[in-house]
Design a protein around this nucleic acid. Structure first.
Lengths: 190, 190
DNA sequence: GGACATTGATTAGACGTCTAAGTTTATCCC
DNA sequence: GGGATAAACTTAGACGTCTAATCAATGTCC
């Protein structure tokens, strides 16, 4: 790499120093990033992106879902699903079909090629999981799972409550507008 | 089927059904999203975006860091920091200064306005944390923290190992190339 | 039976993040 | 001292994600 003679050590030293007293949120966020990266690095060797994995995973369990249902199962919003599905269709891993009875819904089906990926890709995710929890006490792991689930539930409840009070996740436009106060024309960099 | 009369209940039902046996990764990922959203919704009322928060948080603890150091503390790559700092400077929350002795480094300092945000914003994060862990047994919470830390460490070690075997997180260009149809020269080394 | 509401898919556009590839400045070493 | 090397910042461009707005099909209800 560059100057990092021992990147791992460096990362760990950083963590040990900075995190233990910090809020749970940072730990969770960084764990997510680490898990995603570990999977990504393995998926790319099979020409599958992380964004594709998210949906293939669901479809391997059950296909023929509508895009909306698929979004729900994958835990993302519909435009995300839409974009990923377009790519997946282009790659020949899924087909989107409409039925004559209902031309509003679009049903997503795996192609044989798409289904065939399961055997190659699932083991990669299992490997990542194995590495991630290596040496972790099963009881602690179960506790962690329970805590994460509780966090998700607590916050889902909170979000519902906020919504009824009209607080909402900001639109990207609202965020963009935030930059308009006190604007200074950049800075002259020689 | 998708009549969300009670979105929260719906979300929870989904979770209860789908998650407990699933891999840790999905739980972690969804917890991250929930935590980020909960904070976002509160920050936006003070005209601060989540991307800004990430860096302000570090600077409130200690400012005068270089961009590189700040990136490290925030746990993101340098271009991310660069972009965020540009916006923060435009908003008048930070200043980037160069010293005559070393014009390579850029030191980031909070402005009084930037520093003043701390009092308003930190309580929001504390509130989110409180809500998130509401009703969670402290011992379990400690266990969860330990598990997450272990996961991060395990994967950091793995990533270092992978790097020495030339596996890397894919470049966006490599991922883009994945969409180009069934042709796949790949295997070309840089 | 037709106007209105609702649902599902799509488009538009932004954010936060990343890797790779420059720039510019400082440091090293012969 | 001057060219090679490295460090720090910047630019370029992509991905995954989101909200809001629009389009198209299907209900609903008087």
């Amino acid at each position: 790499m560059k100057h990092d003679d021992h990147p791992t050590q460096d990362i760990l030293r950083h963590w040990r120093a900075a995190v233990p007293n910090d809020r749970l949120a940072h730990l969770v966020k960084d764990a997510t990033r680490a898990l995603v990266r570990a999977l990504q690095v393995r998926l790319v060797e099979h020409d599958v992106s992380f964004g594709h994995w998210t949906f293939l995973r669901v479809l391997w369990e059950r296909d023929g879902l509508t895009q909306r249902e698929l979004s729900h199962e994958a835990g993302v919003m519909e435009p995300t699903t839409f974009t990923a599905l377009q790519a997946l269709e282009r790659l020949g891993y899924v087909e989107r079909r409409q039925l004559p009875e209902n031309r509003k819904n679009i049903y997503v089906h795996l192609t044989p090629r798409g289904r065939a990926l399961k055997g190659k890709l699932v083991p990669l995710a299992e490997e990542v999981n194995r590495i991630a929890v290596d040496g972790v006490d099963p009881a602690q792991l179960a506790a962690a799972r329970a805590v994460l689930l509780a966090v998700i539930e607590n916050l889902a409840r909170d979000e519902a409550r906020q919504e009824s009070i009209e607080r909402r996740v900001p639109s990207t436009r609202a965020v963009a507008r935030m930059g308009e106060g006190t604007r200074r024309p950049k800075r002259a960099r020689p």
